[in-house]
Measured scan of single mutants.
Amino acid sequence: TKVFYNGTYVEFNNPEKAKKYAEKVAKKVGGTFTEKNGQFHVE
């Protein structure tokens, strides 16, 4: 499961961990995250 952010991504074996990371990054940058095709995108 990949989490895309700012033109790069971090890959996780565990979708649950990926979601938590996406939430954390989104919170940090004051943005939101969306799930597309089983991957997370932070905006």
Rank of each mutant, 00 (worst) to 15 (best):
N14E: 10
V3P: 01
K27P: 01
A26W: 00
V42G: 01
V3G: 01
Y5N: 03
E43P: 03
V3K: 01
N6I: 03
E11M: 09
F4D: 03
G31T: 07
G31F: 03
N13K: 13
Y21M: 06
A22W: 03
V29K: 05
K2G: 08
N6C: 15
Q39N: 15
V42F: 04
V3F: 00
Q39L: 06
G7L: 03
Y5K: 00
A22I: 02
F12P: 01
A18V: 01
E11F: 08
Y9R: 00
G31L: 07
N6Y: 09
G7I: 00
T34W: 12
H41Y: 15
V10M: 10
E23D: 08
V10D: 04
H41F: 15
K24R: 10
K28L: 13
Y9T: 08
G31Y: 02
Q39Y: 09
A26Y: 00
H41N: 08
Y5S: 02
E35D: 06
F33N: 04
N37R: 06
E23Y: 05
T34L: 11
N13M: 12
N14Y: 05
G7Y: 05
T32Y: 14
Y21G: 04
T1I: 13
E43Q: 12
G38P: 00
A18W: 00
K24A: 15
V42I: 13
G7C: 14
F4N: 04
E35P: 03
E35F: 08
K24S: 13
E35T: 05
E43N: 12
V25D: 00
K17C: 15
E35M: 06
F4A: 03
K20M: 11
N14H: 08
A22V: 03
Y5M: 07
P15M: 12
K2Y: 08
N14S: 14
K24Y: 15
E11A: 08
K19H: 07
T8Y: 14
E43Y: 14
V42H: 02
T34P: 02
E16I: 11
V29T: 11
F40I: 09
K20Q: 14
G30Y: 05
E16C: 14
T1M: 06
K17E: 15
G38H: 04
V25G: 00
H41Q: 08
Q39I: 11
K20E: 15
F40V: 04
G30D: 06
K24T: 13
G7A: 05
E16W: 05
E11H: 08
G30E: 06
G31M: 07
F33Q: 04
E23S: 07
T8N: 11
K2C: 15
K19C: 12
E43F: 14
F12N: 01
V25F: 11
Y5P: 02
F4M: 05
Y9C: 15
F12V: 01
E43G: 09
V3A: 01
V10A: 07
P15W: 15
P15D: 06
N13P: 14
K24Q: 14
G38Y: 03
T32W: 13
E23Q: 11
N37W: 06
N13Q: 13
Q39G: 10
K20G: 08
T8P: 00
E43H: 13
N37C: 15
E35V: 09
N13V: 11
G30L: 06
G31A: 08
T34S: 11
K36M: 12
H41W: 15
K27Y: 05
A18R: 00
E11G: 05
V10C: 15
Y9H: 07
N13L: 12
E16Q: 11
K28H: 14
E43C: 15
Y21K: 03
T8R: 11
Q39M: 10
T32K: 12
G30R: 08
T34R: 10
E43I: 15
K27N: 10
G31R: 03
K24C: 15
F33R: 03
K27L: 12
E16S: 10
Y5Q: 03
V42M: 03
K19P: 03
P15G: 07
A26V: 05
K28A: 15
G30N: 11
V42S: 00
F4T: 03
F4L: 05
A22K: 00
T8G: 12
K20N: 12
F12D: 01
G38E: 04
V29N: 07
E11Y: 09
T34I: 14
V3I: 04
V10L: 10
G7E: 06
K28E: 14
E23L: 06
E11S: 12
G38W: 01
E11L: 08
H41L: 11
A22L: 03
T8S: 12
N14V: 07
G38R: 03
K17W: 12
F40M: 06
F4C: 12
V42A: 01
A18K: 02
K19D: 03
V42K: 01
E11I: 12
K17D: 15
Q39R: 04
V10K: 12
G38D: 05
G7M: 05
Y9M: 10
V25N: 02
V3L: 02
G7W: 05
E43D: 10
V42Y: 03
N37D: 14
N6A: 09
K19F: 09
V10R: 10
E23V: 06
E11T: 11
F4S: 04
N6Q: 11
Y21H: 10
K17S: 14
G7V: 00
K36F: 10
Q39V: 12
F33K: 03
A22G: 03
K24H: 13
V29W: 08
K36E: 09
H41R: 06
G38F: 04
E11Q: 10
V3Q: 01
F33S: 07
F12K: 00
V25C: 15
N14W: 04
F40T: 01
Y5D: 03
V10P: 00
Q39K: 04
H41E: 07
A18M: 00
G7Q: 05
E23R: 06
A26N: 01
K36C: 15
F4I: 07
F33I: 15
G30A: 06
T1W: 14
G38C: 10
G31N: 03
G31W: 01
T32M: 10
K2W: 06
G38V: 01
G38I: 00
K24M: 15
N37I: 04
K28F: 10
A26K: 00
K17L: 15
F4Q: 04
